[in-house]
Simulated scan of single mutants.
Amino acid sequence: MYLCFIDESGHIPSKGSPKVRYFVIAALIIPESQWQEISREFEAAKRRFKVEGEIKWQFFGPDNTSKGNCLLHLSFDERSKLRNQLLASITKRKSCRIVATKSEMAKAWQQGYIKSKMDVYHYTYKQTLERVNYFLQDMSKVTGDFQRGLVVCDHRGKDDDRAFRDYHAVITEKESAYTSRFEHFVERVMLTESHHSVGIQLVDLCAGAIGHAFNHDKMSWIDTLRPNIRAHPQKGIDGFGLVHWPK
């Protein structure tokens, strides 16, 4: 079985706002057998740098001095070294895979069916979840065994969680000619508090790296992750591990 952690990068901008070009939702897919060692490596890296608290992509910025930033005692170079060590727990394992959707905000708000920020989130999430399902389909063919995944997302609030669970149920259970058959998932979505979840904190770094790449035209961190992004043997990651929406 695979543990499929899903999280977003940043926030969805209001309609017409030029501040954010792309909103990103990423999934980090980890084989169950690798989970314990990855968790140990994650915590060990934090101990080496004397970090206590939740890891977030935004905390690594040199200008981030927010009160809740657990990296304030580290220099910029130390923050970069820590981030490298945390991501290494993923990148050194070829069995860990990443898929993501980058939603272009200017085009998304032009779609007639997009009425709210929640609509943007749902359609971005759906594209990402489809790629997780395709990965599980691929692995079922490779191994000859039916592979399943457990989806884990960040808890928000009571009302938001209820709406999200309902949406997840609709897209994974409804039979439609326009919807993928999500038959590889165990139960429904699991929601957990991010500060208690190593997987959510790691996928936050993945989503942050991808969002940073396309919002700031800086590819260094996404290039670090590129070997782990789901890809077609000839066509690469575009459309397979990294979806651009709307097309």
Rank of each mutant, 00 (worst) to 15 (best):
Q36K: 15
G16R: 07
I29Q: 08
I25G: 00
Q36E: 15
V20A: 07
K15S: 04
F5M: 06
F23L: 02
W35Y: 13
V24Q: 01
D7M: 01
E8G: 02
G16E: 12
P13D: 01
C4L: 12
E32W: 10
I30G: 05
Y22R: 09
Y22S: 06
D7Y: 06
G10W: 11
E37C: 07
K19M: 05
A26T: 09
P13K: 01
E8D: 13
D7T: 05
I38E: 08
A27G: 15
H11L: 08
E32F: 12
S14E: 04
S14I: 00
S14N: 05
I12R: 05
I29M: 15
K19P: 03
P13E: 01
Q34P: 01
C4F: 13
S39F: 02
E32K: 13
Y22V: 02
W35N: 12
E8I: 05
G10R: 06
A27L: 13
D7A: 03
A26H: 10
K15M: 02
S17W: 05
A26C: 10
I6Y: 00
I29N: 13
P13W: 02
E8P: 03
G16V: 10
I38D: 05
K19V: 11
G16L: 10
Q34W: 14
D7E: 07
S33R: 14
V24R: 02
E32I: 07
H11D: 11
C4T: 13
K15E: 06
E8T: 00
D7I: 04
F5H: 09
F23D: 08
I25C: 07
P13C: 00
S9N: 09
Q36D: 15
S33G: 10
E37D: 14
V24T: 14
I29R: 04
R21T: 03
E32P: 09
K19S: 11
I25S: 02
S33F: 11
S39T: 13
A26W: 12
V20N: 04
V24N: 04
I30L: 12
W35F: 12
H11M: 04
I38M: 15
K15G: 00
W35D: 08
A26V: 06
A26P: 11
I30A: 07
S17L: 02
L28R: 04
I30Q: 05
K19H: 09
I30T: 10
R21K: 14
Y22Q: 05
I6W: 01
S33E: 14
P31K: 08
K15D: 06
A26N: 09
G10H: 09
E8W: 02
I6P: 04
W35I: 09
E37T: 14
K15A: 08
E37N: 14
S33T: 14
S14L: 04
Y22F: 15
F23I: 06
H11W: 01
E8V: 00
S39D: 08
Q34S: 15
G16P: 12
Q34H: 15
P31F: 05
S17G: 00
P31S: 01
C4N: 14
Q36F: 10
P31C: 01
I6S: 03
S17D: 12
I38S: 09
G16M: 10
S9P: 00
V24E: 02
G10E: 08
A26E: 12
V20G: 01
P18L: 06
I25M: 07
I6N: 04
